[in-house]
Every structure is written in structure tokens, then in C-alpha cells.
């Protein structure tokens, strides 16, 4: 009974916080997303949430807000209709997007360094090993000359993929 009351209370509080588009702290932020580093001059940090403009969203992640959801090329994540306000809000004539809420939606881990105002977004569910097909995840990396190679370049051959390190 206690647990039920507590969780209901927490949920109501959560709803309340989510519905009020409170203005948090204006900060500069460094975002690491899919191996790319982007400096954001104005972000809004608010109770563990991180809001950036949709223009910065595109610059940092290549994701765009579309009627069907948050999309990049063929990939689209629909936003739950009843929870739009957790993800998108309008303020100061701009459209803002909550990257932390999106990370939670796509089961993406986030590591944060407060002192250096840096956020690292890890692998989304779509980037992890696809167990249903047992398909080897593709990647593209450069050799010592700087020439990029993809695992998929070797499709049609048997491959021994092997890691090593200097350390």
C-alpha cells in the first residue's frame, strides 16, 4: 500500500513537472552523439533534462522533427502523442527539443560530466546487435593511411573480425 501511494505520488509529481515547460538554467553544452562532437551555445538544463533548439538537434544528431516523429534518413522514432510536451516546446520564438527524454524513449544511455558541461549519448536500441537476424553490426573505420573501410565491403566472403590494442 505504501509503495502504491509513493509511486502514484511520484508519478503525479512527474506529470506536473513534465507539463510545466519551466525554464531551467541556460548553459553552453558539448554533445557527443554518434561519434560526433558538437558545441551548443545555448542549451537549457532543467531538472536533469536537456533542451536544445531543433536547429541544434539537426546539427548535433542529424535527427529532425517531422510530423511522423524524430527522423533521420529512413529511421523514424514516433513521439507518444500524449507526451508531446515532454519532448517539444516553444520558447523565445524557437522550437526546443528534450534530448534526455528522447534518449529514454530510444533506450539510449547517457553519461554526463557536470563540470565540463558535456553529454555523451551512447548506442540507441537500433544500433545494438540485432538478435533476430544475427546480423553482424556494420561499422566504418579508417586504416593507417586514413582510407575508410566498412565491414560490409567484405560481404560475400568469410570474415574473421578480430580486435587488438597497443596497451
Amino acid at each position: 500500500m505504501m509503495t502504491w501511494r509513493f509511486s502514484t505520488g511520484a508519478f503525479l509529481l512527474f506529470l506536473l513537472m513534465a507539463r510545466v515547460p519551466a525554464q531551467g538554467k541556460q548553459i553552453r553544452a558539448t554533445l557527443l552523439y554518434d561519434g560526433q562532437t558538437t558545441e551548443i551555445s545555448t542549451a537549457d538544463e532543467d531538472a536533469g533534462q536537456l533542451w536544445i533548439t531543433t536547429a541544434d538537434l539537426k546539427r548535433a544528431t542529424r535527427f529532425e522533427l517531422k510530423p511522423q516523429g524524430v527522423c533521420r534518413d529512413e529511421l523514424c522514432f514516433p513521439l507518444p502523442k500524449s507526451r508531446q510536451s515532454e519532448f517539444v516546446r516553444k520558447s523565445a520564438g524557437k522550437s526546443w527539443f528534450n534530448l534526455m527524454a528522447f534518449a529514454q524513449l530510444v533506450h539510449q544511455p547517457v553519461a554526463h560530466d557536470e563540470a565540463l558541461s558535456t553529454w555523451y549519448f551512447g548506442l540507441r536500441s537500433d544500433q545494438r546487435q540485432n538478435l533476430s537476424s544475427l546480423e553482424a553490426p556494420n561499422f566504418t573505420l579508417a586504416d593507417i593511411e586514413g582510407t575508410p573501410h566498412s565491414l560490409s565491403d567484405f560481404r560475400g566472403k568469410k570474415i574473421l573480425l578480430i580486435t587488438w590494442a597497443s596497451w
Partner: peptide, 14 residues
């Protein structure tokens, strides 16, 4: 750890 190996067949399947 290293070294770690994975075998991948002609169809790109582990």
C-alpha cells in the same frame, strides 16, 4: 578484452 574474435559468414551473419 583483446584479442577478441568473431566469425562472420558470406551473408554477414555471425
Amino acid at each position: 578484452n583483446v584479442p577478441t574474435g568473431v566469425w562472420i559468414d558470406e551473408q554477414g551473419k555471425i
